[in-house]
């Protein structure tokens, strides 16, 4: 690696630097998701030799950490709590889309067709990863459905067994909610699975094809 010996007085023999400060930087970078020690070293050496870039990074990180938070109502990533989606007059509060992580909101917002609001679970039931029902915000979800007078809940979770089971759990939870007598039963829906638009039929996996077939519609 060409950066491993340079004028910063840094020699890379066996992964130990002569600078404890640099070593600390490499270690904290390599704890970031997707970064191994090798790429962390490359980034660290780049940062210490380009101080302007480093300063910008420090400042923007500090600012983001200070300003970014999770919306207390829906769990989205935002700078104002409650978030813009939760407070917007134009978003229908009676329509609630349940997703696993804040990132799952992005494709919906990018597509722009959805006029309802969200609820982020922050995870899926998975005892093997130590995630149990009491670790997920089901209490807040129930409250949200009640207070906002939600009419339709749209479940948009992964189609893994964890996603399916979490959906099944919520189905019973929400089904049993008492409803005002003048209102219809809570409507629960799930995203359809099927053939991607523009996808060639010949390359669809069997399971997706079977689902698409099972839930085919009149034409």
């Amino acid at each position: 690696m060409e950066h491993s010996r340079n004028n910063n007085g840094v020699a890379n023999d066996g992964g130990e630097f002569q600078s404890p400060a640099l070593e600390r930087l490499v270690r904290s970078l390599s704890r970031l998701p997707g970064l191994g020690r090798k790429s962390a070293t490359r980034l660290a050496l780049h940062l210490v030799s380009e101080s302007a870039a480093a300063e910008e990074l420090v400042e923007s990180t500090a600012q983001a950490c200070e300003q970014v938070c999770h919306c207390g109502r829906c769990g989205a990533i935002t700078e104002q709590d409650p978030c813009r989606i939760c407070t917007s007059e134009r978003r229908d509060p009676k329509l609630l889309c349940i997703v696993a992580t804040p990132v799952d909101i992005l494709p919906f917002e990018k597509a722009g067709f959805y006029r309802g609001r969200y609820f982020v679970l922050g995870g899926l039931l998975s005892p093997l990863d130590g995630v149990r029902a009491e670790d997920l915000p089901f209490g807040r979800l129930v409250e949200r459905v009640r207070l906002d007078g939600v009419d339709e809940v749209i479940i948009a979770l992964d189609s893994s067994v964890e996603g399916e089971t979490t959906a099944l759990y919520m189905q019973r939870l929400l089904q049993e909610l008492p409803r005002d007598s003048d209102r219809d039963a809570l409507h629960m829906t799930r995203l359809a699975t099927g053939i991607p638009v523009g996808g060639a039929l010949a390359y669809i996996d069997e399971v997706t094809l079977q689902r698409a077939f099972q839930f085919r519609r009149d034409f």
């Binding site: 149990r132 029902a133 009491e134 399916e164 089971t165 759990y169 019973r172 939870l173």
Partner: peptide, 19 residues
């Protein structure tokens, strides 16, 4: 694990299993 939610959780896993 907490027993209070466990039965409902087990029921959800059972539904997925049965499927």
């Amino acid at each position: 694990a907490d027993y209070s939610t466990a039965r409902e959780e087990l029921r959800a896993w059972n539904r997925e299993l049965a499927h």
